[in-house]
Design a protein around this nucleic acid. Structure first.
Lengths: 223, 223
DNA sequence: GCGTCCTGAATTAACGTTAAGTAGACTGAT
DNA sequence: ATCAGTCTACTTAACGTTAATTCAGGACGC
């Protein structure tokens, strides 16, 4: 268990740093990238600053030039990932009508989860351990909760409109929204990229599953 | 972040130990119970032996009389919880026909996740952090994977039989099985016991959602 | 007087964090 | 064109704390 953490040597090989002599500090971004991966694999407490620094290729105290504390690194990494996720998903939404928009939303969410499988777990961890989320600073917590809430609202709006329009048919709005989102959120826990199914295939299957959950008439793809 | 862990005092009030003068050492069970709750809330690395011991009401080294290491406590707690889960779910299965058996399975899984919300997260954590799971001892890992596999097989069998019988209709067996299981597995992440919906209500809603996913004709309850 | 179940003190290693110093690039004045 | 000075982006050394674990011993029941 403890053997997964570096004891003497860095956990991963330092990144290649040959190109462009430290061109105006990309260090911050590189720290966040390494940190996110390590937090995702080992959790917050399982990831040492030494491991992060080792993977970036700098000494541990160097991190303190870019960030105030381990907490700040963690929060910055999570927030950046959430930003990235929301941008990616919202960037694919084009249709105004509930049914095709719902398809787009499910597809984009699932695709991101599968393509960024490694990092995807961090968010679930943060929100999963309730005390951990509660111990973020109030501003950090509020910003993250705000992003969460607005995303949830996106789903609920689509579901509500679809039901009004008569293209969806489901019992409870809130429960259905949570159910569909959590379905999409946790694809990454079982998906195996070496397996028989491609990302595209799983995306399509999940779109159909989600459509069934909201009571949409399935066979309209070509129409 | 670090403030969630006890620094001087035990994290929770020691349990009441008045009844029955240490009647033939129930200590082991009490340690496991406390440990499971703490692991669920703070994760493996976020939980100290001091915190566990403090909650049980003994000194830290006392744990070493019952267990060899922190790893062993963790593994024993997870395995016991899995045992409990499987017993609870399998104990409710009565119907031999795929459709009612599927209902039973979904209902039992969801009910357990909601009623044991606190502990439910531990398993997800263990399996979520891939390196963590991989660092369990081979025997520990094998036992847990074995339990996982046999449970998954239960689902797949029901789905396959139901499709043969014509009561289910879905595209990909493996994906559908994973999707329905993960749906049930993560109810606890959003459910709020103080909220409007009771456990029973959510169980019913989830049974319907799952039935839709596998393409079952919904309205047969009374028939 | 032996096994069970625990305590208090001690050990070693790792953690996050601070302090102090330094190499290199850029700036402006000479 | 050069040199002092400043800013950036680190370095090594070190601090205080806490972690898991060990050990030597002690109470309590049979």
């Amino acid at each position: 268990m403890t053997t997964i953490r570096p004891s003497g040597a860095p956990v991963g090989a330092p990144e290649d740093r040959s190109g462009a002599g430290t061109g105006r500090s990309d260090s911050r971004a590189r720290i966040l990238r390494s940190a996110l991966g390590l937090f995702a694999r080992h959790g917050y407490d399982g990831t040492s600053l030494k491991a992060i620094a080792g993977q970036v290729g700098v000494s541990t105290p160097a991190l303190y030039w870019h960030f105030e504390s381990k907490d700040e690194i963690y929060h910055a990494a999570v927030e950046q990932m959430l930003d990235d996720f929301l941008d990616a998903v919202r960037g694919t939404l084009r249709a105004p009508e509930p049914l095709p928009r719902f398809r787009e939303l499910v597809a984009a969410h699932v695709r991101w989860q599968l393509e960024r499988r490694e990092e995807a777990g961090v968010y679930a961890q943060t929100m999963g351990m309730r005390q951990l989320a509660a111990s973020l600073s109030p501003e950090q917590r509020d910003r993250i909760l705000q992003m969460q809430r607005s995303y949830l609202e996106e789903w609920r709006t689509i579901l509500a409109r679809g039901r009004e329009d008569g293209v969806f048919d489901f019992a409870d709005l809130r429960t259905t929204a949570f159910a569909v989102i959590s379905l999409c959120e946790y694809v990454h826990t079982w998906f195996n990229p070496e397996g028989a199914l491609s990302v595209d295939a799983v995306v399509d299957l999940y779109v159909d599953l989600a459509l069934r959950m909201v009571g949409a008439e399935l066979r309209q793809e070509v129409a």
